[in-house]
Design a protein around this nucleic acid. Structure first.
Lengths: 112, 112
DNA sequence: TTCCATACCTCGCAGCGCGAGGTATAGTCG
DNA sequence: CGACTATACCTCGCGCTGCGAGGTATGGAA
C-alpha cells in the first residue's frame, strides 16, 4: 500500500467536503466514512482534521448546520450555502489549474 | 486569468524542483524562470519559497550544491543525489495517488 | 459489565508557503 | 559618472493548516 504525505493534503479537506455536500447533505461521521470508500483510503480525513474544517467552513458561511436527533445520538447535518457553492467552483478551478501544471512538469521532458 | 491558491501549493515546490533537476542540473534563478514558462505561470515559485526549499532539500541530502562563478556572479547549480532520486519517485507516487483520489471525488457522482 | 461502533469535540505541535526586504555584480543609457 | 535594470543570491516572521492524541457520551451486542 502507499504511504500518505500530509503536506500534499493542504486544501484538500475543504475541497472534497464541499464537493460531497454539493451532492447531498451529510453529517461529519458520514463524510469521513464516505471519503474512505470513494477515494479508496487515499484521502481519509481524521476527525482532528474534519471537525475543525467543518467549523471553519461554517464560520465562513460556506455551510449551514442542521442538527438532528437520530436514535438518541446527535448528528449535525451540513448543507451548502450559495456562498459555499461559489467557493466550490473557484476551488475546483484552482485545483485543476494547479494539478494540470504539476502534471505537465511530471510528464517527462518538455513535450509541451 | 486564474487566481492562485497558496494552500494548494503545499509540497509542490519540492516535487517540481526535484523533477526539474532529474532532467539536468540547474541553479535557483534558472529554476524559477523555467517553472514560469513550463507551467504557464500557474506554478511560479517566489524566491521566498524557492531558496529556503533548496536549502532544506540540501540539508536533507536530496541535492548536491555546485557553486560556480559565471561572469562575475555566483550561481549555485544543484544536482540530484541518489537519495533525491528516490525521494522524487516516492513523492511522485504519492502525488498521483492523492491527485487521482481528488479527481475521483470531483468527477461528479459516484459512478464506480 | 465490558466492549465496540457511532458521533461529536479540542488542544498544541510542527510544517510550509509567502511577501517583504536585503546584498552584490554586470551591463546599459544618458 | 550616476541611475536603472537584470541577474543571483539570501533571511525573517506571519499565518494557515493538517494531524495525532485525547476526551465525552449514547446505544447495542457479547
Amino acid at each position: 500500500m502507499g504511504e500518505r504525505d500530509p503536506t500534499l493534503m493542504a486544501g484538500v479537506p475543504e475541497l472534497v467536503v464541499l464537493r460531497l455536500l454539493a451532492e447531498r447533505e451529510m453529517y461529519g461521521y458520514e463524510i469521513a466514512r464516505t471519503l474512505k470508500v470513494v477515494s479508496r483510503e487515499t484521502l481519509s480525513l481524521g476527525e482532528g482534521v474534519l471537525y475543525p474544517a467543518l467549523h471553519a467552513m461554517e464560520a465562513r458561511g460556506l455551510l449551514r448546520p442542521r442538527p438532528r436527533q437520530v436514535e438518541g445520538r446527535t448528528r449535525i447535518y451540513y448543507q451548502l450555502t450559495a456562498r459555499g457553492r461559489r467557493r466550490l467552483a473557484r476551488l475546483t478551478a484552482n485545483w485543476q489549474r494547479m494539478s494540470a501544471g504539476v502534471a505537465r512538469i511530471l510528464g517527462t521532458s518538455g513535450h509541451d
